[in-house]
């Protein structure tokens, strides 16, 4: 292993993905460094969510590779990917809505056989959930559901966390809280890929930004560079 690759938490190269016969990702390349928040930014249908699903093995890839700290993930069955240390917070949260908060957390813990200590750490991160353990998760508010979805994923103690639009449809105070959590996780050394549509959210938490367009990673820039010159945002998304 080379010196450069040891700093890479997750490396995607030349990834081709299809939904049936429709190609969605065209040789996508992407590097997530250890301990950084990498933001995928782009229009609807650009391939951001598909990229995350491809990492999780939920969308099969026809070519290319996904490596987690040097370990190849592409050949693995979907249920082995989380066990390798990638946790996924899907778009729309996708909680097991009929189950209680505690049961959702239990499923997270079971993934990599984590125990009470991890459960306590996760609940300390989201103290609100502690009071709701026996409540059916479908009856939580949107913000609480997002917290539970993140808590469930963090029960894996993942090296890499995939967050798909975690602030979608939440009120501003909740958005702030979710952002705080992402920053806190970075301090704890979790490497995060964040899919976002909101420019302000990107600028406030991301270290680097990938502009995804038509299933390709067009450009990866440092967030300082983007703050100084936001023209790229306009170019790829047409807003900002």
């Amino acid at each position: 292993m080379t010196e450069a690759s040891t700093n890479e938490a997750l490396t995607i190269s030349g990834l081709d993905c299809f939904y049936g016969e429709v190609q969605v990702l065209y040789g996508l390349d992407l590097v997530l460094n250890k301990g950084e928040v990498l933001c995928l930014f782009g229009r609807n249908g650009a391939g951001k969510t598909t990229t995350l699903k491809a990492i999780m093995g939920l969308v099969p890839s026809r070519a290319g590779s996904v490596r987690l700290d040097g370990k190849e993930l592409t050949g693995l069955p979907a249920h082995e990917v989380p066990k390798a240390g990638v946790a996924y917070v899907p778009q729309g949260r996708r909680l097991f809505a009929e189950m209680t908060v505690a049961e959702n957390i239990e499923i997270g813990l079971m993934t990599r056989g984590k125990g009470k200590a991890v459960r306590e750490n996760v609940l300390d991160l989201f103290p609100l959930l502690r009071q709701r353990l026996r409540q059916r998760s479908g009856t939580l508010s949107g913000g609480e559901q997002q917290m539970l979805a993140m808590a469930r994923a963090l029960c894996l103690e993942p090296q890499v966390l995939l967050l798909d639009e975690p602030t979608e449809g939440l009120m501003p105070s909740m958005i702030a809280k979710i952002r705080e959590t992402v920053v806190k996780l970075r301090e704890l050394g979790v490497s995060t890929i964040l899919v976002e549509q909101r420019v302000d959210a990107v600028l406030s938490v991301a270290d680097r930004v990938c502009f995804i367009e038509n299933g390709r990673n067009r450009e990866t820039v440092d967030v300082e560079q983007l703050r100084a010159d936001p023209s790229a945002v306009r170019r790829y998304v047409g807003v900002g």
Partner: peptide, 23 residues
């Protein structure tokens, strides 16, 4: 645990896979 795994698969098999459940 077996029951939990069965219910998780029933509600959302894709998300179940993302949590290590061999659907």
């Amino acid at each position: 645990k077996i029951g939990l795994i069965m219910r998780a698969t029933q509600y959302d098999s894709e998300t179940a896979q993302a949590f290590g459940i061999p659907v």
